[in-house]
Amino acid sequence: MDWAFASFSEFLAMGKYAIFVWPCIGLTVLAWLWLFVVEKRAYQKLSRAMKKQGLSLEKSA
């Protein structure tokens, strides 16, 4: 399997399309991170609240 670019700087430049390609990749990665971080934090908060009330996921089920 060969790399598509001869050097790392060429890879970063994406031919001449870096200004179009990297924002697309960045936006997608950030969007996924944002979605999961928000839910993960909410879950941690809810888990703490459940513990304070003496509930557990196993018991609630």
């Binding site: 790399w3 994406m14 390609v21």
Partner: peptide
């Protein structure tokens, strides 16, 4: 992004 070959018409912009 790094292994797939360039598109013959669109160059690296196709990676979007």
């Amino acid at each position: 992004l790094a292994i797939a070959p360039q598109d013959y018409q669109q160059g690296d912009a196709f990676r979007i």
